[in-house]
C-alpha cells in the first residue's frame, strides 16, 4: 500500500464509490439509531437508493432498477402503511429502542462481527481490481433465468402467491364474515 493520496484521487471509480458509500452508510446508521420511526423509514430510502446506485455502478443495471422498484417503490410503502395501521409512536420517542444495558452489548457484538468479517474479507480478496462500470446485458440475465433457473423461478412465483394469500389471511378480521 504505497499508493499516494494524489494518485488515489485521480481515479473516477474511487470518487464514485466514496460518494455512493457515504449516503448508504449514513442512511443505514440513521435508520438504526433514529428516534423517529418515520425518519427511520426515510433514511432507509436513502440507504437503499445508495445501494441501488452502487448496483448501477457495478454494471448490474437490472438488479439496481429492481431495487428501486421493489424496495423503494413497494416495500417502503408497505412500511409506511404498517406505521399507519399500528399507530406507531410518532415524533421523538425513546421507547423505540431497548435500554442502554441491552444496547451496549448489542453494539459491541455487531461491531466485533463487522471487524471479524471485514478482516476475513480483506484477507481473502485483497488487491483484486474489478471493472466497475462495465454493464452486464439484461438479456444475459433473462437467458439464465429462463434456462437454468427456470424451476427456481417458477417455485418463487408460487412462494409469492402463497405470501399474498397468507398476508390476506393473516391480516383480515375474523369477526363478521366468519372464518
Amino acid at each position: 500500500m504505497t499508493v499516494s493520496i494524489a494518485d488515489w484521487f485521480k481515479e473516477t471509480a474511487n470518487w464514485v464509490f466514496i460518494l455512493l458509500a457515504i449516503p448508504t452508510l449514513l442512511g443505514a446508521w440513521r435508520t438504526v439509531t433514529s428516534n423517529n420511526i418515520v425518519r427511520s423509514v426515510l433514511y432507509l430510502v436513502v440507504s437503499l437508493g445508495g445501494a441501488a446506485a452502487m448496483f448501477l455502478s457495478l454494471g448490474a443495471a437490472f438488479v439496481g432498477w429492481t431495487v428501486v422498484l421493489v424496495y423503494i417503490g413497494a416495500v417502503i410503502i408497505l412500511f409506511l402503511i404498517g406505521i399507519m395501521i399500528t399507530r406507531a409512536p410518532l415524533g421523538m420517542k425513546a421507547e423505540l429502542s431497548h435500554a442502554s444495558n441491552v444496547r451496549m452489548p448489542a453494539a459491541l457484538l455487531s461491531l466485533s462481527m463487522f471487524v471479524l468479517v471485514a478482516w476475513g474479507l480483506i484477507d481473502a480478496f485483497s488487491n483484486t481490481a474489478i471493472e466497475p462500470f462495465e454493464p452486464t446485458p439484461t438479456s444475459d440475465i433473462a437467458n439464465l433465468i429462463f434456462s437454468r433457473f427456470v424451476v427456481p423461478f417458477e417455485v418463487v412465483s408460487i412462494v409469492l402467491l402463497a405470501a399474498l394469500i397468507g398476508g390476506i389471511a393473516l391480516a383480515r378480521r375474523d369477526d363478521g364474515g366468519g372464518a
Binding site: M1, V3, D7, W8, E11, A13, N14, V16, F17, A21, T24, L25, A28, W29, T31, V32, S47, A51, M54, L58, A106, A107, L109, S110, L111, M113, F114, V117, A118, L121, I122, F125, S126, N127, T128, A129, I130, P132
Partner: peptide
Amino acid sequence: MTVTVTWYLVLAAALFSMGAAGV
C-alpha cells in the same frame, strides 16, 4: 490502485453489521 471488490464487500459487511445491531 483503483476500486477493488474488497471495498464493496467491506461496505456490505458494514451494512450487515448495522442491520444486525438494529435487530
